[in-house]
Design a binder for these strands. Structure first.
Lengths: 220, 220
DNA sequence: TTTTATTTTTAGGCAAATCTAAATCTCGAG
DNA sequence: CTCGAGATTTAGATTTGCCTAAAAATAAAA
């Protein structure tokens, strides 16, 4: 069985995972900053995680997750993103309100719970921020999915998926004639309400609210 | 704002609440037994909870929850039972598998989460074990709801509610002609599969599986 | 009403996770 | 190649929750 980790240990693994994405080797100071703690505390914890073979750690030389540590980190991230999806999809949370709650929910241990939740949600591939959700084996789509909100001005993008299957959303998309595969050119953005004007399939202009743009994932 | 409690403190409050239901004044030893810890530890924690005005504690004389402590305990129990309902209703957990998971979920702090979950579930009044769920103000139905599983042999009971609104269940009830208000007499129980034979409205006999019996709440 | 048994509390310590301050290491500048 | 700035680790304390063992209080029995 996977050894039982404290919430603190799990948070360390997760933070190391995120730093690893950009810093080939992670430093004590960077991790301390990321966890809002002090370097000395990080060193203490690293000795423990190293002993448990979850990180490859050489004093003064930096560290990375071991294979086992990576698997554990991905399991936590999987839980985090699945809960975020649940909160937005079923509990009417905004995509910007879910992080703090998911930080707590991600430490619930039951694997049965996670896997049932995954099934209940329909095995989503991306969380509400467009980040990929690892599957039960830790596998995930490699790139972050970007939504219309982040599309560059004057670029034409293609709708690749929607962030929700709610009937309210699907109806709205139908009346606006937006489907998977529709091309959208971002014409203008309005700072006032974060809405945007787009040109649809090279023709009509359309105003899209921030809420809608956030649920439209696109490829450039 | 409500002061932030540790998980341990919350578990103490909850345990005191449950003991209070039967023991007018709670004793150090009883609480220690209930939490699988030692009397000395309980005394330590009681001093802390007493200082925070969550329990009324007089050394050597026993203790009870204060008004504030009761409110906090009910909020935890509310979360516990709502999560149990969610697990059974939406994630296919058996009613006997949910307790351990709910023990973890009940400590998630977001009140927005709890209240949205409550709404999502349809403001249920009873958890899957028939225990009443406190509402947002801590109010709840006073009696435990009993389900058909616990009905005494040869007694006639009346279906008062069902534990789920799932279409699968409602369809089954329709074909079996079981409605709210239907009288059922428990004729026989079978230890092999925990199913039971009942007489419906004083007429036909019917076999009811354990799963079905558990979702049928009755009055005697 | 003593004395004994039981319960509860105090005293003193331990482990986890944190901190500050001091010591040590690494690496780039000169 | 040496030195010092900055990063890292060690040393020593603190807090929380728990423990054992001993002392104190209450309750029960003689």
């Amino acid at each position: 069985m996977a050894l039982q980790l404290s919430i603190t240990e799990e948070n360390y693994l997760k933070a190391i995972y995120h730093l690893q994405q950009t810093h080939d080797k992670v430093s004590t100071n960077d991790l301390a900053a990321s966890l809002h703690t002090k370097a000395a505390s990080v060193t203490d914890m690293l000795k423990k995680l190293s002993q448990k073979k979850l990180v490859d750690y050489e004093p003064y030389m930096g560290f990375t997750l071991s294979e086992a540590g990576l698997g554990t980190a991905l399991a936590i991230i999987r839980k985090h993103r699945l809960w975020e999806f649940f909160l937005v999809e079923h509990l009417q949370f905004g995509w910007d309100e879910v992080h703090a709650v998911a930080e707590e929910l991600e430490h619930i241990t039951s694997t049965l719970l996670v896997d049932r939740l995954d099934a209940f949600l329909g095995y989503p591939k991306f969380d509400p921020h467009g980040d990929p959700i690892p599957d039960i084996n830790g596998k995930m789509v490699l790139l972050k999915q970007i939504n219309l909100t982040d599309a560059p001005l004057q670029h034409t993008v293609t709708v690749s998926s929607v962030g929700s299957q709610s009937t309210a959303l699907l109806e709205m998309l139908k009346t606006k004639n937006i489907l998977i595969g529709t091309s959208l050119k971002v014409v203008e953005r309005f700072a006032f309400d974060n809405s945007m004007d787009v040109e649809i399939n090279g023709g009509k202009h359309l105003n899209i609210s921030q809420q809608l743009a956030q649920t439209l994932f696109v490829t450039i």
